[in-house]
């Protein structure tokens, strides 16, 4: 696994998960993965499995918490929800991301 690439991806994925939970409320892992796929359309090829390490990471930082519940189809599943610190964190992460995106945009802009 090339580590430097996954580092960038990691931060992005974390923010995606947080934003998903912000807009959708409590959701299980599969639901989060599907939602990210739907939002990104075809532009992102996501291994659904990779969201679990991301969720663990967020839970360790106490940005999300989890709880076993019953899914819409009656299957027992683990549901994740944003915590108050997580909600605050979104703001900061968004800012970070926008700064990086803006910087990248400046680099990629055709020089004239």
């Amino acid at each position: 696994m090339p580590e430097n690439k996954s580092d960038v991806l990691q931060g992005t994925l974390d923010l995606m998960v947080l934003k998903t939970l912000e807009s959708m409320g409590s959701l299980h892992g599969y639901g989060i993965a599907r939602r990210i796929e739907q939002v990104s359309g075809d532009s992102l090829c996501l291994n659904q499995g990779t969201i679990y390490p991301a969720l663990l990471r967020l839970e360790q930082r106490a940005w999300v918490n989890s709880e076993w519940g019953i899914s819409e189809t009656g299957r027992r599943a683990k549901f994740y929800a944003l915590t108050r610190t997580g909600r605050k964190q979104i703001e900061q992460e968004t800012e970070n991301w926008e700064r990086i995106a803006a910087t990248m945009a400046r680099f990629l802009a055709p020089s004239n």
Binding site: G29, Y30, G49, Y52, S71, R75, K78
Partner: peptide, 14 residues
């Protein structure tokens, strides 16, 4: 973890 992953697969299969 095993439970959670199998739930994921079950939901996907469904």
């Amino acid at each position: 973890l095993d439970d959670e992953l199998s739930a994921h697969l079950d939901l996907a299969v469904l």
